[in-house]
């Protein structure tokens, strides 16, 4: 730092940055734009939560009430005491739990095959995985329904779980494969020489190293399965077998929509996703492979 040259390149940085961003006014403009986009994204969420706490008269007031001045919890008690709330919470949790767990196990094994073994049709399989994700879900509703009906899986949680896995797996397999390719092959080889079986090396060395990938894919699977509506709505008829998203739809009847309780229910439904994400996201940033190879 005592070098007389040390200051020179540093002094150059702000000047260059200013030039690139077009001065202070330009930067202000970008910040404003950023804030505007943020407001646009956050507003519906805010409106949902705010409405959940508003009294009925405030919800339907002609001049919008921006903030629940007289907050009330009655919408929440109302929502919770609707029929089948707790049964549907349980259903959602079962479905999400199974989808996350199964997708992690199946995707790990499938990604392993794609990343570490050479077999005939491997390239075709990879292309298929990407291709499958391009098909719009709505086009699949009827075929999936027919297939599941034949297998006697309609109006069953297992049918929904299988359906969700078909959406979730391509992405998770693809993502995990990418993480696995990033782990040097020599690590597994070292483990094999040290006394592990090939699979043992995968589990003891590869698995911990793709932790960030597992976290990312489990968040994806969780959100997909928790928020999905159409397939659950089509497949699950009995009220006590439905998921929370379908339950939310029951707030809209032919006599109108109970907005307050609906927003309260939606707020409650969103909570687990937020909790799950906060609990698990800190692990994503971990760069675990650092220090594996080279000096």
């Amino acid at each position: 730092m005592s070098s007389p040259l040390a200051g020179a390149p540093l002094a150059g940085v702000p000047a260059r940055a200013r030039r690139r961003r077009g001065g202070r006014r330009g930067r202000l403009g970008w910040n404003a734009l950023g804030l505007a986009v943020f407001a646009l994204i956050i507003f519906p969420v805010y409106w949902m939560i705010a409405t959940a706490f508003k009294r009925g008269s405030d919800i339907f007031a002609d001049t919008p009430v921006w903030f629940p001045i007289h907050p009330t919890l009655s919408n929440f008690t109302d929502a919770i005491h609707r029929p089948h709330f707790w049964a549907d919470v349980k259903n959602s949790l079962i479905i999400v739990g199974c989808v996350v767990a199964l997708s992690l196990v199946l995707a790990f094994l499938a990604a392993l095959a794609l990343a570490k073994f050479r077999f005939y049709g491997r390239k075709a399989f990879i292309v298929l995985i990407i291709g499958v994700q391009m098909i719009p879900l709505n086009a699949l509703i009827i075929p999936i329904y027919l297939v599941l009906a034949k297998a006697n899986q309609v109006d069953k949680l297992s049918g929904v779980i299988i359906t969700y896995l078909t959406f979730v797996l391509p992405f998770t397999v693809w993502t995990l494969r990418g993480f696995m390719i990033g782990v040097p092959r020599e690590l597994e080889e070292a483990a094999q020489v040290d006394g592990s079986t090939r699979f043992g090396a995968f589990v003891r060395v590869l698995l911990p190293l793709i932790g960030p990938g597992l976290v990312a894919t489990s968040i994806f699977a969780f959100i997909q399965a928790w928020n999905e509506f159409i397939m659950a709505y089509v497949l699950l008829h009995s009220p006590e077998k439905q998921t929370l998203t379908v339950w939310l739809a029951s707030f809209t009847t032919n006599r109108g929509t109970a907005w307050g309780p609906l927003m309260a229910g939606a707020t409650l439904t969103a909570l687990p996703v937020v909790i799950f994400f906060v609990a698990i996201q800190r692990k994503i940033a971990f760069g675990l492979t650092a220090g594996a190879v080279r000096g």
Partner: peptide, 9 residues
């Protein structure tokens, strides 16, 4: 190994 292949975790 040339790269040492230490288990980073």
């Amino acid at each position: 190994f040339q790269s040492y292949a230490l288990y980073p975790h």
